[in-house]
Amino acid sequence: MISFSLREKNWIPYLLFLPVLIYLAGFIGYPLLKALQLAFSSEEGKFGLENFITLTQDSTFWKALKNTLYLLITIVPLQVILAFLLALFVNSRFKGYMTVLYIISIPLALSDVSAALMSYNIFTSHGFLNKFLMKFGFIENPIYFFGLGLSSRAFWVIVLTELWRATPLVFVILLASLQMISKDYFEAADVFGFSKWQKFFHITLPLTMPSLQSALLIRTLFAFQIFGVVWLLSGRDIPILAGEVYYQQAELNNFRLAATYGFIIALICIIISWVYITLLRTKHLEMER
């Protein structure tokens, strides 16, 4: 990054940044304070932990927390592994890999609502899967995936949908970092006697590790915000944290509890980011300066 020498006009970059700062202060900073205030105020508007007490005594909160964590630990590892395999495959640059890259990227731009409806289309009682299985005599009656008491089936449909929808997200991060590894490193490894596996474990893996870690973090954070897919496919049968924010606000009009749920999501995200940043450091990048 080269800069013009502008000693006498060094306020310019700050001026360029000013609109952003004002905007972020107004539409992120201020609402954030407002959210804090809401979460920590009682019905009469006094400061207190009342909302948190109400929340922890509500079994739905614990269920929502549990479900969110379940989804997280099922989806994220699978997603990262799948995405890494895909990225390695596409990065081998076979003929026509650009087309494959394009196809894998399509879900990137799809909304969770759209993705949920697509999987509903497949898994509903009149959906393609049931019709197909019945047509060829695998089953006699449709398998129901959605509805009361079937939340464990819906859970797996949600997992599949999220895998389909969000694996490409991890995939592009990893592919970008694979593409950045200089070919020279592998050629040097060839010359100095590395086997295929040694190249993978001693060059590819350590050099993509930073991206792998940040993909892991991003997916973890996003998993706490998962909403559209779950809400459309199971409603409140599988309560989740973000869903409860929506439910408290839109259905019950309880702004304070909604904000409290939101606060807890934010808190978890901040703690995870902090743990991540302190625990995982990449030496060869850290020591640069």
């Binding site: 200089s182 020279d184 490193y185 050629e187 040097a188 490894a189 060839d190 010359v191 100095f192 006697g193 590395f194 086997s195 001693h202 060059i203 350590p206 050099l207 990449t282 030496k283 060869h284």
Partner: peptide, 21 residues
Amino acid sequence: LSPKDRNISMVFQNYAIWPHM
């Protein structure tokens, strides 16, 4: 023979020393 079986070594133009080691 593949490079690793030739008992050669090489100095690359951009050095190619592995950044994480």
